[in-house]
């Protein structure tokens, strides 16, 4: 019974996201059984304005695709002591199709859950004799955008069983922890209040199927961990570093909440 003076409607819309007239995205899917708050999971795209939505519908309008193009060049550039490029082993970025849909993922050899960024640095340092990229450096975010882009339209299917389970549980714990002086958990905003307005922002379910996202406010591609840090900071809390075990666990958990949506990265957000 709340009538808002001047603010827009609060519910996500039912528009259909088809990218480049050919990649038909799943913006709404039945919620996985472990997401008890919703019947339906909804892509962050459905919560944005028509203008912002339109930018994601065509690669020529999507500013995030410039990062993808930069990373394509990097993919073919020799780096490190072995003089190899990514393409020396992976031929084309398209050979990595499917990666984004299943990460973060348990790595048997390392006995740990790896994000796409960790996997890229593994190849750089251990296979190419190169320096690692900064976890949140522009080059890494571009590369993550390239790796996401070749999986667009694939259904997110992150594994949460087996050895990854304790990490997933740690992530779930973090999701429901009320951090900071404002004592707000991810769930307070993205479950309890999804669809409502918090000041000028239309709260989504906080899904990460669109990452890295190009944020118009920042005029830059933003990584998953950067976004998490921003949300934690906004609770007047001490954040966690990018690449930290906490944010990796949170990423695994949040990614799994999107199982059934499609990979959209690089998505466009305000």
């Amino acid at each position: 019974a709340l009538l808002m003076a001047g603010s827009g409607s609060a519910d996500p819309d039912h528009d259909d996201l088809i990218v480049n007239g050919e990649i038909d995205m799943i913006e709404r899917a039945p919620a996985p059984p472990y997401v008890e708050a919703f019947d339906e999971i909804i892509s962050g795209w459905s919560f944005r304005s028509d203008e912002t939505q339109a930018l994601q519908m065509d690669d020529f309008d999507n500013p995030g695709m410039l990062g993808v193009e930069r990373a394509r060049v990097m993919f073919d550039t020799p780096m490190g002591s072995g003089g190899q490029a990514c393409s020396s082993c992976h031929e084309t970025p398209e050979a990595l199709r499917g990666v984004r849909a299943t990460y973060p993922k348990w790595d048997e050899e390392r006995q740990t859950v790896q994000t796409v960024e960790m996997q890229v640095n593994e190849c750089l340092t251990e296979r190419m004799g190169a320096e690692p990229l900064g976890y949140d450096s522009p080059e890494m975010v571009d590369m993550a955008a390239l790796i996401a882009s070749v999986s667009r339209g694939m259904v997110v299917n992150v594994a949460i069983d087996g050895p990854a389970r304790p990490v997933w549980e740690q992530g779930r714990e973090l999701y429901y922890t009320r951090f900071g002086q404002l004592e707000l958990a991810c769930a307070n905003c993205h479950e309890d209040n999804a669809g409502r307005m918090i000041r000028a922002d239309h709260l989504s379910q906080g899904q990460i199927n669109g990452f890295p996202t190009y944020r118009l406010n920042n005029a830059a591609l933003i990584s998953v961990h950067n976004r998490f840090r921003g949300c934690i900071r906004d609770t007047r809390a001490e954040t966690f570093p990018v690449g930290s075990p906490e944010l990796v666990a949170l990423e695994l958990y949040v990614a799994s909440r999107g199982n059934g949506l499609t990979v959209e990265g690089p998505a466009v957000r305000n």
């Binding site: 951090f179 002086q181 900071r233 007047r236 809390a237 001490e238």
Partner: peptide, 23 residues
């Protein structure tokens, strides 16, 4: 979910305002 505006303890990882740094 409404924050406590005149309270100084009992927080988890309180920050220094909106800096993201420790309180």
């Amino acid at each position: 979910i409404m924050p406590a505006f005149y309270k100084t303890d009992g927080f988890i990882r309180p920050g220094d305002g909106y800096t993201g740094k420790a309180a």
